[in-house]
Simulated scan of single mutants.
Amino acid sequence: MNREQISRLAHADHPIAAPLDDDSVRRLLERGIPCGDERVLDLGCGGGEWLVRALTTYPQLRAEGVDVSVSSLTHARTTARTLGVHERLVLHHEDAVDFAAVHAFDLVLSVGATHAFGGLLATLTAARKHLAPGGRVLIGDGFWAGEPSPEAVEMLGDLADLPTTVDRVIADGWTPVYGHISTRDELDDYEWAWTGALASWALNHPDDPGSSQALAAATTHRDQWLRVYRDVFGFVCLILRRTSAEPEWTAPPPQ
């Protein structure tokens, strides 16, 4: 059982792959989509949950998603078709780092996927390439809410505290226009859902060759969460606009 399969099973009860409840997701989308007819891009869309929710809420919206996972994109297509929004959704199977669109986007999303780009600021650099003038970026990333142990840093990366995180974003030329800090309930609910869904699948499929691996992964993850990073890890989502005016977006040259 590979990492992608484990993640898919672990998110069965929490399709938003980040510590956010449904109300928080709704509010963030409302702030990122002020008109309702925007063009939206999700870099690292996974199963397309953000895009599908936006499309079902805003009938005039158009959306595109990029991800390297075939199974996740298949799930996104199936969900979109079931909900009748598939004609307004385009999905791209490729590395989001290399993605080049033929038009700009009013909202660019990347929540919980900054590792794919090499960090928060690198993700913002990638998002900026796709952003229409006056557009918004919705980005979500972790921060240290307390003093981390060396083990926590090794596990989750060299994050900053929240003020420093925001300072770095501002220094990079962005202005936050809205934000959400995940609550303790959201953080705990996400971890319980992740470990619980994976463990439940393993217990429900004892004869599956991947059952013991899935149960071990759930046990290890739960232990690391409770013992290593639960008390020091936070998660913030920011809606950002460019601080200064930028040149009009231009299409990439033909390949």
Results as ranks from 00 to 15, higher is better:
Glu30Leu: 08
Gly48Asn: 07
Asp42Asn: 06
Arg81Met: 15
Leu28Glu: 06
Asp42Gly: 06
Leu51Trp: 01
Gln60Thr: 04
Leu29Lys: 03
Glu49Ser: 05
Gln60Ser: 10
Gly36Ala: 07
Leu28Pro: 13
Glu64Leu: 02
Ala54Val: 08
Arg27Val: 10
Pro34Tyr: 03
Arg26Phe: 08
Glu49Val: 08
Tyr58Leu: 03
Pro59Phe: 03
Leu41Trp: 14
Ser69Leu: 00
Leu55Asn: 05
Arg26Met: 00
Tyr58Thr: 03
Arg77Ser: 11
Val25Ile: 09
Gly36Gln: 11
Leu83Ala: 00
Leu73Met: 02
Thr74Ser: 12
Gly65Ile: 05
Ser72Gly: 13
Val66Asp: 09
Leu83Asn: 06
Thr79Asp: 13
Asp21Gln: 12
Asp37Leu: 06
Gly65Cys: 02
Arg39Gly: 08
Glu64Lys: 05
Thr56Pro: 08
Thr56Ala: 09
Leu29Ala: 01
Thr57Asn: 03
Leu83Lys: 12
Gly47Val: 04
Glu30Ser: 02
Arg31Glu: 11
Asp67Tyr: 00
Leu61Gln: 01
Cys35Glu: 15
Glu64Pro: 07
Leu73Ala: 02
Asp21Arg: 14
Val70Ala: 04
Arg27Phe: 11
Glu38Asn: 03
Asp42Phe: 03
Ser72Leu: 08
Glu49Ala: 15
Trp50His: 06
Val52Gly: 10
Leu83Pro: 15
Thr82Cys: 15
Glu38Pro: 02
Ala54Gln: 09
Arg31Thr: 13
Gly36Trp: 12
Glu30Val: 06
Asp67Asn: 01
Thr74Cys: 01
Pro34His: 07
Glu64Ser: 11
Arg31Phe: 05
Val66Trp: 04
Glu64Arg: 04
Leu55Asp: 08
Arg81Asn: 10
Arg39His: 15
Ile33Thr: 08
Thr57Val: 02
Arg77Asp: 09
Leu29Gly: 01
Gly46Val: 03
Ala63Gly: 13
Asp37Trp: 13
